[in-house]
């Protein structure tokens, strides 16, 4: 079989993007405050996600607290998302959609802090950093049942 790949040297390996994991591995240094996050949200996010993250052309981020077991469940960050690290990762790689990848790590911490605060998951006066974010326990963390390893087709 051919082996045509190029082996990367340690310098090139150090430059590779590192996946951010739910236990906080891969979180960068830096910090941001809830207040900074509020200002960034008003500038970059509100036009799609709506005032206070209540939703618009983009999904609701905060606000509704209707339980997941109820008739009209709110699948927003506080009610639904299992990991806070996912929020930081998603903002950093994909938001805002008109300029993805444009936010600094500090700005991503600030937006994450504000969104967690809006969901009652982070105090207003404490800056968010890697240690803090890695320690946030989301209310629905254990609400997902992995279908892998596969146990055959579900019914239905």
């Amino acid at each position: 079989m051919p082996a045509l790949g190029e082996r990367l040297d340690p310098e090139a390996i150090a430059l590779l993007p590192q996946t951010l994991f739910a236990d906080g591995r891969g979180l960068p240094s830096g910090r941001g405050t809830v207040r900074q996050g509020a200002l960034l949200y008003a500038r970059l996010c509100v036009q799609c996600h709506g005032p206070d993250g209540r939703g618009g052309s983009a999904p609701e981020l905060a606000g509704g607290r209707s339980p997941l077991a109820g008739d009209y469940p709110d699948q927003n960050i506080g009610n639904w998302w299992p990991h806070a690290t996912t929020l930081f990762d998603f903002i950093r790689r994909a938001m805002p959609m008109f300029a993805p990848g444009s936010l600094s790590d500090a700005e991503c911490y600030a937006l994450t802090a504000w969104l967690l605060e809006r969901n009652g998951l982070w105090p207003e006066d404490v800056p968010l950093d890697a240690a803090g974010l890695g320690a946030v326990r989301m209310p629905n963390r254990d609400g997902f049942d992995s279908q892998w390893p596969d146990r055959g087709p579900p019914h239905p």
Partner: peptide
Amino acid sequence: GRARQFSFF
């Protein structure tokens, strides 16, 4: 209120 995850097939 629980959810399926990694329902690949």
